[in-house]
């Protein structure tokens, strides 16, 4: 039959690497080269990753659509599926359903300054957008990344963070709660760094993702800096199953995070029942 919305495409893991003690990154390609060639998405969209026998779960495609040699996912080990995924290695089969959900407004952000504010594994959705913008660098204004973690070892994409820092065309501010003796970045929580930097809200868009508590204080800090609700963009995490707006659980009022999200502006979130 056609039209089974729950049937994944088969895919193969081509590479895995450890990000932190409990976060791994996977690069996968669809088994069918034709399907892989046809696969299109925009930054912020998600996909359901399956390990048959342990279920499937939603992850943002954190590679950018400008780099289609593989699709990259970053997975924190927290439950049934993610424990299983962490045991998989290059060559192992997985399933993939996607792309799903909405995406960042990459067109509307053109010509504007972009402030990325991330915490922990919340760097994943920022990565796809950041790389997309770096690959289309001339389209965007100043780019700033503020990224924090519990400790240096809890930061994801360490090699890339070093690369981005070394580039001359963007600003990178890294911060941790608990530094080790080699740490050269900042110490303290992300919202404080944001406030210290005094980033201008003029012609800017702030994109933030991280733990709920970080998001809350980041939004407060952004508001103090003069960012309006339309200038603040975030991605929401929700428990999801079907990914196509049917199973019910990711609803916020009459919206579904899996279809209407995961990307929302603060203005959109204010219009929803406050339940997230």
């Amino acid at each position: 039959m056609t039209g089974n919305p729950y049937m994944p495409q088969l895919a193969t893991i081509v590479e895995t690497f450890d990000e932190t003690p409990d976060i791994k990154t996977f690069r996968v390609v669809l088994l069918d080269p034709e399907a892989m060639a046809k696969f299109t998405f925009l930054p912020g969209q998600v996909a359901q990753l399956s390990a048959f026998g342990s279920g499937e779960s939603t992850f943002v495609i954190n590679s950018p659509p400008t780099r289609m040699d593989s699709l990259q996912f970053t997975v924190m080990r927290v439950g049934e599926l993610t424990h299983r995924l962490h045991t998989l290695k290059a060559g192992d089969p997985v399933g993939l359903r996607g792309p799903l959900g909405n995406h960042f407004d990459v067109e509307g952000m053109k010509g504007r300054d972009i402030v990325f504010i991330g915490g922990g594994v919340g760097m994943a959705p920022l990565r796809t957008l950041l790389l997309y913008m770096l690959d289309n660098r001339a389209d965007y204004g100043d780019i700033t990344l503020i990224y924090g973690g519990r400790s240096p070892e809890h930061l994801c994409y360490k090699a890339e963070l070093a690369e981005w820092t070394a580039r001359g065309d963007m600003r990178v501010e890294l911060t941790v709660d608990n530094p080790d003796k080699d740490w050269k970045g900042r110490v303290g929580v992300v919202p404080t760094v944001l406030t210290e930097l005094g980033t201008s809200a003029k012609n800017a868009v702030a994109v933030t993702c991280g733990p709920p508590i970080m998001i809350r204080f980041t939004i407060q800090a952004l508001e103090k800096l003069g960012f309006t609700d339309e200038q603040i963009v975030t991605t929401l995490e929700r428990r999801m199953k079907c990914g196509v707006g049917l199973c019910g659980r990711c609803n916020i009022g009459d919206k579904f995070v899996c279809v209407d999200g995961p990307v929302f502006t603060q203005a959109q979130l204010r219009g929803l029942p406050q339940e997230f």
Binding site: Y6, C247, G248
Partner: peptide, 22 residues
């Protein structure tokens, strides 16, 4: 009420993905 769960029910090398009421 139509909300549902999706789980894999595994029997060694074979299994099924099922939809169940939630």
């Amino acid at each position: 009420c139509s909300c549902f769960n999706i789980t894999d029910e595994d029997w060694g090398l074979k299994g099924k993905r099922v939809r169940t009421w939630d």
